[in-house]
Amino acid sequence: MTPQSAICAEGGDFALFLTLVLADGDVSPVRRVLAALPDLTAALAAQLDEPALASSVAIGAACWTRLTSRECPDGLAPFAPLAEGGRKAPATPADLFLHIHSPRADANLMLARRVMGALGPHVRVVEEVMGFRHLGKRDLTGFVDGTENPEGDERAGVALVKDGPFAGGSFVSLQRYVHDLPRWEALSLSDQEAAVGRTKEADEEMEVKPPSAHIARVVIEEDGEELEVLRHSMPYGTTSEHGLYFVAYCASPAPFRKMLERMVLSSGGGHHDRLLDFTRPVTGAAFFAPSAELLESLS
């Protein structure tokens, strides 16, 4: 089965993220638009001579059967919120997630407008965020983001369900984070590096990391293998609000969930992810992005 084009492709310099909820009533028009998304993307890519234009759409558990007339993929469930000690990972409404990326912000917007124009009153926009590449691949904190991301053929191995009726699809988890950059930038360089677990300039993992370092919290080994997700995260924002739009694709929802729990919840030693003292998630949603073939069968 063929994955939707945005999943395994390297992210472009710009991305557009849309979360939507379905309106009441007939969903047949929505099914037709979703089924047409791969062809719509390919047609616009040819028109603009922009072969890197890519898209994917993912469907939430609450409307999966309503839209697909199939049972949910095993593991697809609404995002479960977490909270401890003032740290929160909230769940927010979302039935659909539209992800577009390319080297061009204008191409992304053109495709999004065509999709949204076709969906019309059958959906309501919950949130629309435009992401951008910052200083190469650095987060607004100044640290390289996604150093451990799989590359090449490993991307499909991490992101895609390998067999069964949902082969070629991917579980999607998203969170939008808002950074408190003035507080972060008030830290010394050594304190910033201790919070991340990597050096800022050279992006080298520290040999000795505090147990609260981000890397120490999210790098998890099970049976000698490191848990992985395929990230498509990007910085976003304005002068008044900015941060990271986090998107993870994976063959199972479990790795992301385990990482998030180690970030938010304190372990036996009472540690949590130090980065959460300087950034906070304000959204949380979970979806499944079906294969291109399954998507096209909705028409």
Rank of each mutant, 00 (worst) to 15 (best):
P253F: 08
S267N: 15
F132C: 09
A289S: 15
G136D: 12
L76N: 04
T141K: 00
E225F: 03
E50V: 06
S170C: 10
K137Y: 09
S233T: 06
D49N: 15
G237P: 08
L189T: 14
D277A: 14
L37Y: 06
S252I: 11
E221A: 11
P150F: 08
K258T: 12
R87D: 11
R231F: 00
A156N: 04
A105W: 09
A105F: 12
D153G: 12
A46V: 12
V126F: 04
V208H: 14
V27W: 00
H232V: 00
A43M: 04
D39M: 09
E10F: 01
L189N: 07
M259T: 02
H242W: 07
G169C: 08
E201V: 13
V247F: 03
D273F: 03
L37R: 10
L230E: 06
V161A: 06
P81S: 10
V158D: 02
S5C: 01
D49Q: 13
P150E: 06
D24E: 15
S28D: 13
P73S: 09
H99Y: 15
G12Q: 01
S28K: 12
R32D: 15
D95F: 04
G131H: 02
G146M: 03
G120D: 15
Y236N: 03
L34I: 08
H134V: 07
I7C: 01
R124E: 11
S102C: 09
G269R: 13
E293A: 13
A35H: 11
A292I: 11
P3V: 07
S69P: 10
H272G: 12
L37M: 14
Q192I: 08
T239L: 14
D39C: 09
P150L: 09
L109E: 14
P73K: 06
P290F: 06
F17D: 00
E205Q: 14
D24G: 10
